[in-house]
Write a protein that binds this DNA or RNA. Structure first.
Length: 550
DNA sequence: ATAGGGTTAG
């Protein structure tokens, strides 16, 4: 390694050349550890020689990318301490690293230290801060940074860096992603008033998406009209955002109409457009139309990608058309795509639900040949299939395979077994698994697990045991939901334990568990039969009884 | 900086 005390005195060039080599590998091809490079920087630094801004930034970036942002922090501080010239790009690299770790405390600290050390942050610095805050939905803090950067607050912590279009777009997107699109509109007006911050297609796309996601399709469409009027050209993302928004809010026909209208105007769709539409038609049980759109793609010179294939395979599987689904999988492979784990899982689940175990095994074999490892969901699907069919031996065997495959059974794995044992009336086995998972196996049961058991216990007239499970939930901090109470109330109705039912109704109110139509079905008959309609009336008061069919 | 699929237990 180069030493500061070699014949010629070290200078910036020496350290840069040394680092340039060492960041990758040294002359002999030996890989050099990060610590050696850090040591080098430190050694040179003590002689007053520092890497260039570019080299230092490269080192910081590398450290952050390999999860060593703590060391990156040390390096920056060391260079500062030794009097080296640290500039914004190096700090930005560290900020980005800290941002990926959601370490906002340190990000703020770094910003403060930049100010202390006279390092002028740039627009990128604030871009990183705002971007990461928005990504983790901390939009109010992002807005604070935004106000601080331009020094609008007239306080001494302003930085007088002017925001640009990208920063505005980031903020608007952040606001829209948390449902604050109205506030996003406010920023749109603000940026129009500023120099060099003209709204772009992306600005409108973010806003349109915000209104689409909140179901305000009309407002979204108004924005679309507005951007056209202002001469901001819509692009395929604008098109897709609106098409998807319409599809997701039950307006498939409007979506098709809009798509056709745009195509007529020369704005072509792409695979994303077709995914939205195919997905919508599958969900609306219109497989024919979905297939038709799929076939139209090649004519429109828009070849399907893996997601389009997945969407179709998933839709066909859900419609029970397994033959068609595996045919599409074949076409997909012929087109040069590989099925991913989700596609395999969908197909395996589909074959299991059709009781076609041979085909399911064939898929397993195929995925092994394709080098796609089964994951927890694959195993859970199989465990669920075998348990549901009463083959508990095989179910347990598959679970052991799962474990030897270094996968951890989850609450869903145990849930499948518990549910199946309950269905065949083997409550003892179910309770045994429940106790195992919560004690030794360290898989905390959730509401679903408790609901399966409470329901089964009540159906088997073991109401007292079910009640004790509800106490257990309380102890463990697992929140009951409407289904829990429904199961319990049904059990209480069977044995006509009225006082306990009243108690539970009060608890429902306390837990803000809205009664649904099942609750009402149980209570209406029962309470009117025993002349307690008044109690029922006061119970439903203040609730919107949901008409769900779940 | 902006658009699409998210599969397993009640």
């Amino acid at each position: 390694m180069l030493k500061p005390d070699s014949e010629s005195p070290p200078n910036e060039i020496t350290v840069n050349i040394a680092m340039a080599g060492l960041l990758w590998r040294d002359r002999t091809g030996r890989s050099v550890s990060d610590e050696e490079i850090i040591g080098l920087v430190s050694k040179f630094g003590e002689c007053g020689v520092f890497p260039s801004v570019v080299r230092l930034t490269q080192l910081i970036t590398k450290l952050c990318r390999t999860g060593k942002s703590d060391r990156a922090w040390d390096v920056i501080h060391n260079v500062m301490k030794l009097g080296g010239d640290v500039q914004a790009p190096s700090c930005n690299a560290l900020l980005a690293g800290l941002g990926r770790q959601q370490n906002f405390q340190k990000m703020n600290k770094l910003l403060a230290e930049m100010k202390e050390n006279g390092i002028q942050p740039d627009i990128i610095t604030f871009g990183i801060l705002v971007n990461h805050l928005c990504k983790f939905r901390r939009v109010d803090e992002a807005l604070e940074v935004f106000e601080k950067m331009s020094g609008e607050r007239e306080s001494d912590d302003g930085f007088s860096v002017k925001p640009d279009t990208i920063l505005y777009n980031t903020l608007i997107d952040g606001l829209c992603k948390v449902g604050r699109q109205e506030q996003g509109l406010g920023l749109l007006e603000k940026m129009k008033l500023e120099q060099g911050c003209a709204p772009t297609t992306a600005t409108y796309n973010c806003l349109i998406d915000g209104f689409c996601k909140s179901g305000e399709i009309g407002r979204a469409h108004e924005l679309f009209d507005q951007m056209n009027k202002e001469g901001v050209p819509p692009n395929v993302i604008t098109l897709n955002t609106l098409v998807d928004g319409m599809c997701k809010h039950g307006r498939i026909n409007s979506a098709m109409e809009f798509f056709n209208e745009m195509q007529g105007k020369g704005l072509k769709g792409n695979a994303v457009t077709y995914t939205a539409l195919i997905n919508a038609f599958c969900n609306a049980n219109n497989i024919d139309k979905a297939m038709q759109l799929f076939n139209e793609m090649s004519k429109a010179e828009c070849s399907p990608d893996a997601i389009v294939y997945y969407t179709l395979i998933s839709g066909l599987t859900q419609a029970g058309k397994l033959d068609d689904a595996s045919f599409v999988a074949t076409v997909m492979k012929k087109a040069g795509f590989c099925l991913d784990i989700m596609s395999y899982n969908i197909l395996i689940g589909g074959f299991c639900s059709k009781n076609k175990l041979d085909e399911a095994y064939e898929m397993l074999k195929e995925m092994e040949q394709a080098g796609v490892k089964p994951d927890g969901i694959t195993y859970n699907t199989l465990i669920s299939y075998f348990s549901e069919n009463g083959d508990f031996m095989t179910a347990h065997r598959v679970m052991r395979e799962m474990i030897s495959d270094r996968l951890v059974p989850t609450v869903v794995t145990y849930g499948a077994l518990i549910h199946a044992y309950c269905l065949v009336g083997k409550l003892d086995e179910a309770m045994k698994i429940f106790r195992d998972m919560s004690s030794g196996l360290r898989v905390p049961p959730n509401t679903v697990i408790y609901n399966i058991l409470v329901d089964a216990l009540c159906k088997n007239r073991k109401v007292e045991v079910a009640l004790s499970l509800m106490d257990d939930m309380k102890d463990k901090g697992v929140r009951p939901n409407t289904n829990t109470f429904n199961a319990m109330l049904k059990g209480l109705k069977e044995i006509n334990w009225l006082e306990k039912a009243f108690e539970l109704m009060d608890q429902m109110t306390e837990h803000a568990c809205n009664p649904d139509y099942i609750t009402m079905e149980i209570l209406t008959d029962w309470l009117s039969a025993v002349g307690e309609t008044e109690k029922l009336r006061s119970f439903v008061q203040g609730y919107e009884v949901s008409a769900s069919t779940a």
